[in-house]
């Protein structure tokens, strides 16, 4: 038991690692700030394309969405980070992570927003068009607000997954939270820095996870 505490909950080690982890947390936050809005935007475009009238737009989009849902994000990341340099395109880790996650997140957010768009009754856009609104006005002022509200819980849940996913960036040596914790671990030969990182993730994400559970239960029936 003492060993366990010494190895996983060593306060002294944690205190020493704290400044490093804090810097890592800053990078994680920066990543989230880049990746979540970009993913939402990409997802919105993917959703619009995959519900478009034109099959020449719809089918390739659905195929791309499925392709990126089938690829593990880490595989995508490693491909972008260490595969692309063979074409002479050497990306810094941050950019590689953003590109890989943009592809992955656009697919996932796209699927969610698509479900939202489909959930809005056709009568809504018919009514809007009958009052003279243009197609894009109808989309922006009538359809999208309802679509996004209908899938808000799913969007938030997926964003939790995205935050968790940023830990993959440690694999390409981007100094985010987990990478910093793992650095501290390898220097101290003690797992407590990773425990500390876990606690930080927990404090950040648990409230959201709990809130979503309550919320989803309410609308489940």
């Amino acid at each position: 038991m003492d060993q366990l505490i010494l190895q996983f909950f060593n306060v002294e080690v944690m205190a020493k690692a704290w400044p490093l982890l804090l810097r890592g947390l800053g990078m994680t936050a920066l990543l989230c700030l880049a990746v979540i809005p970009l993913g939402l935007l990409g997802g919105l475009l993917a959703a619009l394309a995959s519900t478009s009238q034109s099959r020449w737009l719809r089918w390739p989009t659905v195929a791309l969405i499925d392709l990126f849902r089938a690829l593990p994000p880490l595989v995508l990341l490693i491909f972008v980070y260490s595969g692309l340099p063979f074409t002479g395109l050497q990306l810094p880790p941050f950019l590689a992570v953003v590109i890989a996650f943009l592809l992955n997140n656009s697919a996932y957010y796209g699927e969610i927003i698509r479900a939202g768009l489909i959930s809005v009754p056709a009568g809504q856009s018919e009514a809007a068009r009958s009052t003279g609104l243009t197609q894009s006005q109808t989309l922006i002022h009538v359809v999208l607000p309802q679509a996004l509200r209908n899938v808000l819980p799913d969007l938030i849940s997926n964003s939790v997954e995205v935050v968790k996913m940023t830990s993959l960036a440690s694999v390409v040596s981007l100094a985010e939270l987990l990478y910093s914790a793992d650095m501290a671990r390898s220097v101290t030969y003690n797992a407590s820095p990773i425990t500390l990182a876990a606690l930080i993730y927990l404090i950040l994400l648990w409230p959201v996870v709990r809130l979503m559970s309550r919320f989803q239960r309410k609308i489940a029936i």
């Binding site: 996983f8 939790v160 968790k164 876990a198 993730y201 994400l205 996870v209």
Partner: peptide, 16 residues
């Protein structure tokens, strides 16, 4: 287990 990134747990389990 829904809040923690699996990679964090994997590193903890494997190295700790």
């Amino acid at each position: 287990f829904r809040s923690l990134p699996p990679l964090v747990l994997i590193l903890m389990g494997y190295f700790g």
